[in-house]
Computed example of a mutant assay.
Amino acid sequence: MLDPSRVEPSPWNNGAGSTRELAAETDPDGQTLWRISIASLDHDAPFSVFPGMDRLFVALGPLRLTVDGATSAMTAGEQARFAGEAAVAISLDEPTTALNVMTRRGRYRAEVTLRDADEVAPDGVDATVRLGNRHADVRLGRQTEETR
């Protein structure tokens, strides 16, 4: 169980916000293979760029997400996938948070399922993130040549 309240926030790479890194794995060369984090979103901001990563973004409150010039209004629980190299920004009417799962392109693929906290986690979950009265179950599928 990953509990964001037990992790101190750190600044985004671009300094435009903060995140709580909950779990991550790197390869022997120090390259990130996957990372699970919770972003505090309290003002309109561009996202940091993560070359070679794929991002699964889960809005935990209402916001507008712009990816490479295309804007989508999102509500709590909605998900978006985009490349770490994409030009991404959020705009807000009120502060909120978001779950981010980043995976090294071609090595892993993430899936996230939200459920009520009192429901039992399904089998095959790699990590569960505590989100108050909800939990996010994260699956990190290792990709092979056949699944890419």
Score class of each variant (00 low, 15 high):
G132T: 13
A70K: 14
P51S: 10
E94H: 15
L92M: 06
T113N: 15
E146T: 15
A127T: 01
E145G: 14
W34Q: 06
R109Q: 11
G61I: 06
F57P: 01
D137C: 00
T113C: 14
G15A: 12
E146Y: 14
V88P: 03
G17T: 04
G69K: 02
L22A: 04
F57I: 04
D137A: 06
G17H: 06
A117S: 10
G52R: 07
T66N: 10
E145I: 15
R107T: 11
I38A: 02
P62L: 01
V129P: 02
T103Y: 08
A39W: 12
R55M: 15
A59W: 01
M53S: 01
L2C: 03
L33C: 03
D42C: 02
G52I: 11
L33K: 07
L114R: 14
Q143V: 10
M1S: 13
V125K: 06
T66D: 00
F50A: 06
A87M: 12
T96Y: 10
G141E: 15
T19S: 05
T113M: 15
P4L: 00
P62D: 04
W12G: 03
P62Q: 04
A87R: 12
A83W: 06
L2T: 05
R20Y: 09
D42F: 05
H135N: 14
A83Q: 10
L99Y: 09
T113S: 15
A16V: 10
D116I: 00
L92E: 01
T97C: 11
D44L: 12
P46W: 08
R104L: 12
G106R: 00
P4H: 05
D93A: 11
L131S: 09
L114N: 12
L60F: 12
S72F: 09
A136D: 09
P4T: 09
V7I: 13
G141F: 13
D126E: 01
A80P: 13
V49P: 10
R134A: 12
E78W: 00
R148T: 11
A70H: 15
E8N: 08
D29T: 11
G84N: 05
I38F: 03
S91C: 06
V7Q: 05
D123Y: 07
L99T: 00
E146G: 12
T103E: 08
V101W: 00
T128C: 12
S40T: 15
V67H: 04
A59V: 09
T19P: 08
V101I: 04
S5I: 10
A24G: 03
T128H: 00
T26G: 12
R81G: 14
L65I: 05
A87I: 13
H43D: 10
A98G: 08
L114W: 11
T19W: 02
E119P: 06
A45Y: 05
A127G: 02
G77K: 10
L114G: 09
D3W: 01
V120L: 15
A70E: 14
R130L: 14
G69S: 08
E111K: 13
L99D: 06
L56H: 03
V58S: 09
G77E: 09
M74F: 11
E21A: 04
W12H: 03
E78I: 01
R109C: 00
E78L: 02
A70D: 13
V101T: 07
T26V: 15
T97S: 13
L41M: 14
R107D: 03
L131M: 13
F47C: 02
G124S: 05
M1R: 05
D116F: 14
L56A: 10
E85I: 12
R134W: 14
G17K: 04
L131F: 09
N13V: 14
H43V: 00
